[in-house]
Design a protein around this nucleic acid. Structure first.
Lengths: 335, 335
DNA sequence: CTGAAAGCGCTTACAG
DNA sequence: CTGAAAGCGCTTACAG
């Protein structure tokens, strides 16, 4: 590494500018106590030397790292990537750096991620939990996507029940009486709320509830799980004429299953989905779904955390629900 | 924040275990010089107190942050998200933390990201540059996706020219003589190499090169740009009978354009794409494309960086090309 | 095998 | 308005 020059330190700048480190520090942070001329001289020197304050040292001294940890099941899933971006934009504007960790939906990895973040003395955490959270955190936590009601300094999720109501009533509006549900095992709030929302909406539409119409894929919401669940629905003696999937990934599986069985969408079986698939209008057929608002979700989670950080508030955790909106395409039978 | 207990420090552990901080430090890092019994006692105490070493302090002292920065145009783009995950897995296993930054493809933001990372004293950087790189870095850099030949400690990209050769010769094999190209402005190596690869492959197939068959979208490779470029091709007096797009996003635009013009794929116009669209087999029609190997790309970039970090090597930068593979679906005319 | 001391690069009362 | 000193929480020669 011989070719790489050492970073200049505050002491280097101070000596070069002919002031003490204290004064240099104050000048660079624009402390009002420093004379304008001194300030100018120090800053000019810093610029000339290419000085960049060592944030690690500052953090150690101020006991505030300006790091925020964000933990998600998988950054490669569009939903989380966009939520993280929304949060990151907002946090960086407030002067925080974001450390993103993936858990692959494993509780064990979530615990490890939390430990690592704490070892880096993050000031706070945004957590889309996969169940690894044990309540022993030492910093403010905002839960998003999956909630831990009553915990942390905030909880942000989409209006899962309302969303299901919109989807089911839209299908009912098309005249469907036999509506199937393809979901995920109810380990966490989002899966659970969507399932409950489905059941409640079916009842609200005046339709009989049939337990055989509820089929769950796997814990990672994989397309393969959705495909299997959909096949189970199609194999019923009296299969549903319409299907609601609890996510876009499950919708992908459902499309595969319907196609493999030669059932046309929406002519033979209508399909609607929670979570708008990216480029959903290029799918065959274009899928009717609930608009994604993952960016807003991330921003909202970030602002709840920033609020807690700035006020030190440990008030009762806010629970915020993002409203949800239907995007009508062809798979539901419209057009 | 009154309810949150202070993190215990090494001094706390030492006092509680009845040893000096030096010994405690050595015991926790499993230094061979420490007696087994002492080691056990210290570790037990640390566990009991819930001690987690302050990485910031350690970094400051050891002058090595164990941070690696990763800069990408947009983490919400599947290609980058997966590459980042591959890199992150590998780096975390080696004890590094990853700081991810987005540039939105703006050079100015790339410069800022670099500054921020340097202020956090990252040990190295993985950079999918958008052109903001000015060569003044003080740490090892590995370029990926877009290369800066001869710079940094490593360069990793896909075999862009080979990829184009595969795509073009496949279309030529279907008998196409008039092949159009939908690409992006050649600001960076990947755009440039794909364009050059296209031209070379057309020549290699014994077809005349027609400049009007090359159309470029915008700098961010947006679907909208691809749509416009495709429309330009279709508006030619003698439009191409087959189109190659330089990315999946451009392919999305091309599909839209073809659909809007009522041209069937592949009957009226065949289509193949660099970058396999996620769920490309669910598109209408399923798109023939080059397999994604973004995870390998990220892992490879990470290992080049780790190598440089471990050896301090500043040898001539390696330039690594990932091989590329065709996934045949329907849009090319197969089946 | 263990401890006292110095120092990483900052910030911030305190004194002048 | 400026400086000397202490300290954030670690690690690591150095001495014993």
């Amino acid at each position: 590494m011989t070719t790489i020059a050492r970073h200049p330190t505050l002491a280097d700048v101070a000596k070069e500018a002919g002031v003490s480190p204290s004064t240099a520090s104050r000048a660079l942070r624009n402390d009002a106590a420093v004379r304008a001329a001194t300030k100018r001289r120090v800053r000019e020197t810093a610029r000339r030397l290419g000085y960049e304050p060592n944030r690690l040292a500052r953090s150690l001294r101020t006991r505030s790292s300006s790091f925020v940890g964000v933990i998600v099941p998988d950054i490669a899933i569009g939903f989380y990537a966009r939520a993280v971006k929304g949060a990151q934009d907002m946090l960086e504007r407030a002067g925080y750096q974001v450390l993103v960790m993936n858990t692959e939906r494993e509780g064990r990895r979530e615990v490890e991620a939390l430990r690592t973040l704490l070892a880096h003395r993050v000031d706070g955490v945004l957590l889309a939990t996969s169940g690894g959270f044990d309540g022993s955190e030492r910093v403010p936590v905002v839960f998003f996507d999956n909630l831990v009601p009553g915990s942390g300094v905030g909880n942000v999720a989409r209006a899962n029940r309302d969303g299901m109501a919109i989807l089911v009533s839209h299908l009912a509006g098309h005249g469907h009486q036999r509506i199937g549900f393809v979901g995920a095992p109810s380990l966490l709030t989002s899966a659970m709320e969507r399932l409950e929302g489905f059941q409640a909406s079916v009842a609200a539409a005046g339709l009989p509830f049939r337990s055989e119409y509820v089929r769950l894929g796997d814990e990672v919401w994989s397309p393969a799980g959705g495909e299997r669940a959909t096949r189970e629905l199609l194999d019923l003696e009296e299969p549903p004429t319409a299907i609601v999937t609890a996510s876009d990934t499950l919708a992908f599986g459902a499309i595969e299953a319907l196609r493999a069985r030669g059932r046309r969408i929406p002519e033979d079986v209508a399909l609607v989905s929670f979570d708008d698939p990216l480029f959903g209008d290029l799918l065959d057929p274009p899928v009717t779904a609930l608009a994604r608002n993952e960016r807003e979700l991330g921003e909202l989670a970030a602002s709840l955390l920033l609020h807690a950080l700035q006020t030190g508030a440990r008030a009762a955790p806010a629970e915020v629900r993002l409203p949800v909106e239907l995007i009508v395409r062809r798979s539901c039978g419209c057009n």
